Amino acid sequence: MTTLAPHEALEIHEAINFKTLCLAKSKLMQGLVFDQELKDLMQKDVEQSLQGLTDLQALYKRAPFSAPVPEKRPTPILN
């Protein structure tokens, strides 16, 4: 397994942070939306973001420094 360069690891870390923020926003906004088609699109975004985060976390494990990746994911306020 190849180790990432430090700058690559930091860029992946930034992408993980950004995707986590987008995921939290999509989950929160679902509770404010009444249009079912828009809700479905937002749910698809949530599912794709979760997959993207899983992929990024797998890459981040190759970072040259040790930093734990949290396992917690945002939970919806309203279902």
Score class of each variant (00 low, 15 high):
residue 67 A to S: 11
residue 28 L to D: 12
residue 10 L to I: 04
residue 8 E to V: 13
residue 56 L to F: 05
residue 11 E to W: 09
residue 18 F to K: 06
residue 70 P to N: 02
residue 4 L to E: 07
residue 76 P to H: 13
residue 52 G to Q: 15
residue 73 R to H: 04
residue 65 F to Y: 15
residue 29 M to T: 11
residue 46 V to T: 06
residue 34 F to Y: 12
residue 40 D to C: 00
residue 14 E to C: 03
residue 13 H to A: 15
residue 6 P to S: 02
residue 25 K to I: 06
residue 38 L to M: 13
residue 9 A to Y: 05
residue 26 S to T: 07
residue 25 K to G: 01
residue 57 Q to T: 07
residue 24 A to T: 14
residue 32 L to D: 10
residue 22 C to G: 02
residue 47 E to S: 13
residue 29 M to C: 08
residue 44 K to I: 02
residue 51 Q to F: 04
residue 45 D to M: 03
residue 47 E to D: 15
residue 13 H to I: 05
residue 40 D to T: 06
residue 28 L to W: 09
residue 75 T to G: 07
residue 1 M to E: 13
residue 8 E to K: 13
residue 54 T to G: 03
residue 64 P to V: 11
residue 28 L to R: 13
residue 36 Q to C: 04
residue 37 E to Y: 11
residue 27 K to N: 02
residue 60 Y to W: 10
residue 24 A to E: 07
residue 66 S to F: 12
residue 1 M to K: 15
residue 52 G to F: 06
residue 37 E to M: 08
residue 8 E to G: 01
residue 57 Q to M: 08
residue 3 T to A: 14
residue 38 L to K: 12
residue 50 L to P: 00
residue 27 K to R: 09
residue 64 P to K: 08
residue 35 D to V: 07
residue 62 R to E: 05
residue 3 T to K: 14
residue 68 P to W: 02
residue 37 E to T: 11
residue 3 T to E: 14
residue 19 K to A: 12
residue 37 E to W: 07
residue 62 R to L: 04
residue 15 A to P: 00
residue 20 T to K: 07
residue 22 C to W: 00
residue 13 H to G: 12
residue 19 K to T: 11
residue 36 Q to R: 08
residue 39 K to T: 06
residue 76 P to E: 15
residue 16 I to Y: 01
residue 51 Q to P: 01
residue 51 Q to S: 10
residue 50 L to F: 02
residue 50 L to R: 05
residue 74 P to K: 08
residue 42 M to E: 00
residue 77 I to T: 05
residue 23 L to W: 11
residue 55 D to I: 07
residue 54 T to Q: 09
residue 22 C to K: 10
residue 20 T to E: 05
residue 36 Q to I: 06
residue 16 I to N: 00
residue 9 A to N: 00
residue 12 I to R: 13
residue 4 L to N: 09
residue 5 A to G: 00
residue 53 L to M: 03
residue 13 H to P: 02
residue 42 M to Q: 14
residue 63 A to H: 02
residue 54 T to C: 03
residue 43 Q to M: 11
residue 3 T to I: 11
residue 44 K to S: 08
residue 70 P to D: 02
residue 8 E to M: 13
residue 18 F to Q: 03
residue 23 L to T: 05
residue 67 A to N: 03
residue 19 K to D: 01
residue 37 E to V: 09
residue 21 L to G: 15
residue 76 P to T: 08
residue 52 G to R: 04
residue 30 Q to E: 03
residue 63 A to F: 03
residue 57 Q to H: 10
residue 41 L to W: 03
residue 33 V to K: 00
residue 53 L to H: 04
residue 52 G to L: 14
residue 76 P to K: 14
residue 47 E to L: 13
residue 24 A to P: 00
residue 71 E to H: 09
residue 70 P to R: 08
residue 10 L to V: 06
residue 15 A to Q: 14
residue 72 K to R: 08
residue 3 T to G: 04
residue 51 Q to H: 07
residue 16 I to W: 03
residue 13 H to C: 09
residue 74 P to W: 01
residue 21 L to S: 13
residue 67 A to Y: 10
residue 28 L to S: 06
residue 34 F to T: 12
